[in-house]
C-alpha cells in the first residue's frame, strides 16, 4: 500500500528534518519581512498577545492565537495582524486583515513550527502605529517517525 505521504522521504511537512538542502529563514529575514510591512516605523512591544504552547510535541499542527487590545471602532482599530517564524523555511506564517466590523481583534489557526524558535506577532493599527509580541516555543523531537524502510 503506497499512500501519498509515504513516497515523501520526510516524515514531517516542514523542512526541518535534516532534509538534503534543508533551509530555514533567519531572524534577519523576519526583520526584513517586518520592515516590508512597517516601512521602517518601529514596532512597540505591547497591546498584542501571541498565544502558542511553550512545549510542542509535534510541529505539524500547533494551535496559535493572536489578540490585540483595541476598541475596534472606525476611528481606532487593528487593520492587520501578521505572524512570523524565523526558523521556518519562510519567515511569513499568516496575515489576517480586520476592521471595525470584526468586533474584536483576534484570530486563531493551526500552524507548522519547524523548530525551537521565537515566534513574532505584529499588529498594524489604523493610526499607523505598529505593536508586537513574541513567544518562545520548544519543539520536541518525535521519537518514532513513520519512514521508508
Amino acid at each position: 500500500m503506497i499512500t501519498r505521504r509515504e513516497f515523501v522521504v520526510l516524515a514531517c511537512a516542514t523542512a526541518s528534518c535534516a532534509a538534503p538542502g534543508a533551509l530555514h529563514a533567519t531572524p534577519a529575514a523576519v526583520d526584513e519581512a517586518i520592515r516590508a510591512i512597517t516601512g521602517g516605523t518601529p514596532a512597540r512591544r505591547g497591546r498584542v498577545k501571541l498565544d502558542a504552547p511553550a512545549l510542542i510535541e509535534n510541529g505539524n499542527s500547533v494551535v496559535l492565537g493572536v489578540s490585540v487590545e483595541s476598541p475596534m471602532t472606525q476611528a481606532d482599530h487593528v487593520k492587520a495582524i501578521h505572524v512570523f517564524a524565523p526558523m521556518n523555511p519562510l519567515p511569513n506564517m499568516v496575515s489576517v486583515y480586520l476592521g471595525p466590523r470584526s468586533g474584536r481583534a483576534q484570530f486563531s489557526t493551526r500552524v507548522r513550527v519547524a523548530d525551537t524558535q521565537t515566534l513574532v506577532a505584529l499588529a498594524q493599527m489604523s493610526d499607523g502605529s505598529f505593536w508586537s509580541d513574541q513567544v518562545s516555543v520548544v519543539v520536541t523531537i518525535a521519537a518514532c517517525l513513520e519512514e521508508l524502510k
Binding site: 511537512a13 520536541t140 521519537a143 518514532c144
Partner: peptide, 24 residues
C-alpha cells in the same frame, strides 16, 4: 518518556485517528 515523548498505554480508543504527524 521515550526521548521527549510520553509513552501511552496503547489503548486504541479513537481509531481511525487524525494524526498530526500524518496530517491525515
Amino acid at each position: 518518556k521515550l526521548a521527549g515523548n510520553p509513552i501511552p498505554q496503547a489503548h486504541p480508543t479513537g481509531y481511525p485517528i487524525y494524526r498530526l504527524e500524518w496530517q491525515g
